[in-house]
Amino acid sequence: MQDKSQPSRGRPSFNRRDFLKGSGAAVAATAALDAQREAQAAEEKTVSGSTKLTLNVNGKDHEVTVEPRTTLLEVLRYQLNLTGAKDLQDVAVDGADTVMIDGKATYAGTVLALQAKGKQIRTVESLAAGDKLDPVVTCFVKHDAMQCGYCTPGFVVATRAFLDKHPHATLEEIRAGLGGNICRCGTYDGITKCSLELAQKGGA
C-alpha cells in the first residue's frame, strides 16, 4: 500500500486530559497535574488530531479541517472540491497534482496542508474564470495537447508557472523545464508546440 499520508502515530480521538480526569484518584492529582501541564505545553508546539486551518486558495480564504498528516492535495480535492489537481496515488513523481504555491510549481501531494498556511495557493481552476481562459489553456486546446486529459490540468499549471518564470524559453529549456510531469497517452508533442508558441510571444 502506498499513500501520501504519514501513518497514524496516535488515535485521533484519544484525549489525554479526559483520560486523566477519568482516572480521578486524589493520590494521582499531582502527577496528573504535571501530566496536564506537559500535555498543554506539547500542544503549543505540536498539532495532533483534527485542527482547523485557514488556507488562501485562488485568492480566497477557506477554513478547512486537517490532521497533521493531511496533504494539501487532499484538502483541495476533497474539502474544497477543486479536483483539477489529480492524485495518481504515487509520491512526488508525476506532476498531475501540480499547483502554484507563491508562484512556484509544486506537487500538492508532497505538501502538508499545515505547511501551506499563509501561502498563496493557485490551482488550475484559477486559470479559467467563466469564458475567460488563460492563454495556456487556449493554446493546449489549439495544439490538442491532451488525450484522456487526466494529466492535463497538472501540465497546464506547470506550463503556466514555467512560462511566468521563463517567458522567452527556448525549445531545450521547455524540454528540461516541463520534465516534472508524466503523460501516459503521449501528449508531449502538443505540449511542446504549445509552450514554444507561447514563449515566442513572450510567455503570454
Binding site: 489537481a85 488550475v124 489553456v137 489549439k142 490538442d144 495537447a145 491532451m146 486529459g149 490540468p153
Partner: peptide, 12 residues
C-alpha cells in the same frame, strides 16, 4: 479542436 478540450485543460 476537440469540443471538450477546455473542460479537460481547466480541470472542469
Amino acid at each position: 479542436d476537440r469540443i471538450d478540450g477546455v473542460e479537460k485543460a481547466t480541470g472542469r
